[in-house]
């Protein structure tokens, strides 16, 4: 159980950094956004992992079941709303990328910087 917990945290760290790598090293703006969404998903995973209680169930109270163990509902609420907010802001980012493509004719950071320098 302990190793699984640590494995969760390690996967969080690795996913976080895979996303971060895409953001800092890729030149394509859409690829950067996909990296950002991986980064975001890693943070979601961390929150949900922290809220898990061993032997618990989803926090839905069932009639007639006494002394049930529930996982922590609070991180779940935060992440549930964060996912929806995440997709809205991601869509805004995609919208900006589309506009950049329309103005610059490219979505590669390198091309855009070159056009700006001229």
């Amino acid at each position: 159980m302990e190793l699984l917990g640590l494995y969760h945290y390690w996967v969080f760290a690795v996913l976080l950094m895979i996303g971060f790598y895409a953001v800092i090293s890729k030149s394509n703006l859409i690829k950067k956004l996909i990296g950002l969404s991986i980064f975001q998903a890693a943070v979601f995973l961390l929150y949900i992992t922290m809220g898990k209680v061993a032997g618990g169930t989803a926090p839905i109270i069932q009639a007639g079941v006494e002394n049930a163990v529930f996982s922590n509902p609070l991180p779940q609420v935060l992440i549930l709303t964060a996912i929806v907010v995440g997709i809205s802001t991601m869509a805004l980012g995609l919208g900006i990328v589309v506009r950049i493509k329309e103005e610059y004719g490219s979505i590669e950071e390198r091309d855009i910087q070159e056009i700006d320098r001229r």
């Binding site: 998903a41 169930t57 989803a58 926090p59 991180p75 992440i79 549930l80």
Partner: peptide, 14 residues
């Protein structure tokens, strides 16, 4: 990880 609501959201949205 017992987060049924979040799983539903992620499947529908993500």
């Amino acid at each position: 990880l017992d987060a049924a609501d979040v799983a539903l959201t992620e499947a529908a949205i993500g």
